[in-house]
Design a protein around this nucleic acid. Structure first.
Lengths: 215, 215
DNA sequence: ATGCGTATACTCGCTCACGAGTAGTCAAGG
DNA sequence: CCTTGACTACTCGTGAGCGAGTATACGCAT
C-alpha cells in the first residue's frame, strides 16, 4: 500500500541509517555516506541533504543537539535520531523490502519507442550499450571482490543485487542484438521497410487504428 | 555524456512518440499512451502532461495547430510535432539506447540498510517480496503472450526487457532468502547477535571506525 | 423531465528536489 | 608572508512535477 512517508526522499533513509550509528552534523553524514560507497549509486545532492534533514526534524524523526563551533568554521548542528525516527527507519525498510514497486527505467522508455529508429541503427546503438555495460560490470565485479575481503557480505548485498540485474540486462541486450544482426527478429523486414519509406505494413495500420491494446 | 535535454521529463519522450504518428490534443495523447499500455509502466500524471506539452511548445519541438471546439466541450488545442521535435526524439532515443545510466532503485536502497532488521525478519519480508514478484511475473507473462498474438514483437520489447529484469530480481531474492533460511549466509551469527543485543563484533567495530570504504 | 454516473478536458497552486553559488579555513608552495 | 587551491559547510532561488480539484457534457435509467 506504500503509505505516504513523512519524508519521502530516499536520501532520508540514508540519513536515518547514518544517524542510527551515531549523532552527526549534515556534512558529516555526507562524508559517511560517501565512504560507504553510497555515492556510487546515489549522487549526493547538497540541496536535498539539508532539506531532508530539516524535514526529518520537522516531523520529529531526528532532533538537533548542541551546535558545535570548531575553529572559525561555521557552526555545525549535530543531529541525533529519535525513537520515532528509529521506528520510521525500520518500518520503511520493512515496506521497501517486502513490497515490490514498479519503477520506470530510462532504457525501458527507450525500448518503447525503438520503432523510430531503423533496425540497423538500433543494432549499432545496442552494441555500444552492450560494450559499455560489459565494461562497467567487469569494473564493479572486481571492486566488489576487492571490498569483500574487508567488508562483510551483509553490507554488500545491494551491490550484489545490482550486479545481478546488470547481468540480466546484458543478457537481454545481447539476445536482442543477436536477433537483429542475424535477421531472426520477427517482423524485421517490415520494420526495415517502414524506416526507409515510412510505409506502414497493412496489418499494422489496422492495429494502429483501433489502438494496439496489450492486455 | 547525457547532454541536458530541453525537456528532460521522460513523459516528453512519450508525447513526442505519440505525435509522430499524428497530431493530437493533450487529452488524446493520454488516451493513446494508455492504450499502448504505457500507463502500466508510467502512471499518467496530468499535471506533468500539460506542463510537458507547454515546454515542448516553448522549445519549438511541437507546435499548436487549430484549436477545435466540439459540442460545448472546452476547447482543445491540437499539437503537431515539428522537425526539431522529430530530431530531438531520435537523438534522445539514440542516447538512451546507447549509453547506460545508473539508476537507483528503492529495493537497492532497502538492501543497503538491511542490517537494521534482524536476519529472521529480513527473511520473512524477502519471502513476501518473492511471492509478490512471482505472482506479478506470471501475470505479466501471460499478458505479454496474449498481446503477442496481435502486436508485433517490435512494440513489446520493452515488456520483454522488464520481464527479464524481473526474473533476475526473483533469482537474486530467492538466492539470498535461501542463504538466510539455510543459515549459509556468511556472518549470519554476528548479525543475529547484533540485532538481539546491539553488540557489534570487534572486527566490524574496527572497520566502522576507519570507515568501510569499498573501492 | 430529471437525476446520476461517467467521460472529457483541463487548471492551479503547492511542494520538493536540486545545482550552483558563497564564504570561511587550512595547508603548502613560492 | 602572501597567494593559490582544495576542503569544509552550508544557503537560496528556480523550476519542475504532481495531486487534487473543477466544470461541462453525454448517456441511461427512472
Amino acid at each position: 500500500m506504500a503509505k505516504r512517508r513523512k519524508v519521502g526522499n530516499l536520501m532520508a533513509l540514508a540519513v536515518l541509517s547514518a544517524l542510527v550509528q551515531q549523532p552527526m552534523h549534515p556534512y558529516q553524514m555526507a562524508s559517511v555516506l560517501r565512504e560507504h560507497g553510497k555515492d556510487q549509486n546515489m549522487k549526493i545532492k547538497w540541496g536535498s541533504l539539508y532539506t531532508v534533514v530539516q524535514n526529518l526534524e520537522k516531523h520529529g524523526l531526528v532532533e538537533a543537539g548542541e551546535s558545535v563551533r570548531q575553529g572559525g568554521r561555521p557552526e555545525r548542528t549535530v543531529y541525533r535520531i529519535t525513537d520515532a525516527g528509529r521506528a520510521e527507519l525500520t518500518d520503511w525498510v520493512r515496506e521497501l523490502l517486502s513490497t515490490p514497486e514498479h519503477e520506470q527505467s530510462r532504457f525501458t522508455a527507450a525500448l518503447s519507442v525503438l520503432a523510430v529508429l531503423s533496425p540497423g541503427e538500433a543494432a549499432d546503438l545496442l552494441a555500444q550499450r552492450l560494450t559499455a555495460l560489459e565494461k562497467a560490470l567487469a569494473a564493479r565485479r572486481t571492486a566488489l571482490a576487492e571490498a569483500a575481503r574487508e567488508v562483510p557480505r551483509l553490507f554488500l548485498v545491494e551491490e550484489e543485487y545490482e550486479l545481478a540485474v546488470a547481468e540480466a540486462e546484458i543478457g537481454f541486450v545481447r539476445g536482442l542484438l543477436g536477433e537483429l544482426t542475424s535477421g531472426t527478429f520477427p517482423g524485421l523486414a517490415d520494420w526495415q521497410v517502414f524506416s526507409e519509406t515510412g510505409v506502414v505494413p497493412p496489418e499494422l495500420a489496422e492495429l494502429m487504428e483501433r489502438g494496439l491494446h496489450p492486455q
